[in-house]
């Protein structure tokens, strides 16, 4: 039992909780359910789940409020699961400390991939020096970036951008987050930098004919570096 991961589902819709239980238990999760924000927060404190799936429309409090309270004392990976699809809702949730955001209706494969991605960071507190997705590999120690074994020359800024995305691989990283990390706290409204360098980075690490792209655009929100299994270009 101890090798099973525990997922806490905080959602007032019984049907969603039931379906999530089926999907998650099949993936060897232990599933806890909470109907309200209050109960959910208490469950996080007492039962220490490994991951939280949080709905934004809760009967007793707004999901965002619950998330902010949770973030005051816990770093548990949290995935927002909501019907709200506006970019502003997503950015607000990510800014409030959500690790990623999935809109309902969702595809279960997508949901599980996101769950794995947000736990990946949770599990690796000490950064691994090496990262790989698809044909792309990054060595954080030597700053060496390779595509299918061949070195790719990146400028310092391009490397910094790729590094932030790789450290958060599989998760959406907001424009603001990228700008702060790469250009510093004063660059938050200089989104044109980001567009230009993302464009460059794309040209260097993306294979034009590839079925699956590495760098995914989340319009109005940010970018995501996909976690791909297939290593052949």
């Amino acid at each position: 039992m101890s090798d099973k991961l525990t997922a806490l589902v905080i959602d007032d819709e019984r049907q969603i909780r039931k379906l999530l239980r089926i999907i998650l238990e099949e993936q060897n999760y232990r599933v806890l359910e909470a109907e309200t924000g209050r109960q959910g927060l208490a469950d996080v404190a007492q039962r220490k789940p490994d991951v939280v799936l949080l709905d934004l429309g809760l009967p007793d409090m707004d999901g965002l409020t619950a998330l902010k309270r949770l973030r005051e004392w816990s770093h548990v990976p949290a995935l927002i699961l909501s019907v709200r699809e506006g970019p502003e809702d997503k950015v607000a949730a990510l800014d409030a400390g959500a690790d990623d955001y999935v809109t309902k209706p969702f595809e279960s494969a997508e949901l599980l991939a996101r769950l794995r991605a947000i736990q990946r960071r949770g599990a690796t507190t000490s950064e691994e020096p090496y990262f790989q997705t698809g044909h792309l590999a990054v060595d954080f120690n030597s700053h060496l970036v390779t595509m299918g074994g061949r070195e790719v020359r990146l400028t310092a800024t391009e490397y910094a951008l790729l590094r932030v995305l790789a450290l958060n691989a599989g998760k959406v990283v907001t424009h603001q987050h990228l700008l702060r990390e790469v250009w510093g706290p004063n660059a938050a409204d200089q989104s044109q930098y980001l567009r230009v360098y993302m464009n460059h980075l794309r040209k260097k690490i993306e294979i034009p004919q590839a079925k699956q792209k590495l760098l995914k655009t989340e319009s109005g929100i940010g970018y995501r570096l996909a976690l791909l299994e297939d290593k052949s270009p």
Binding site: P87, E88, H175, S191, Q192, L194, R195, V196, M198, N199, R202, K213, T217, S219, G220
Partner: peptide
């Protein structure tokens, strides 16, 4: 509209994808 800088190429590629 939430206006922000946009790379039109990225916009079109995204729409096509």
């Amino acid at each position: 509209p939430r206006l922000d800088w946009c790379d039109v190429g990225e916009l079109i590629q995204e729409a096509v994808d």
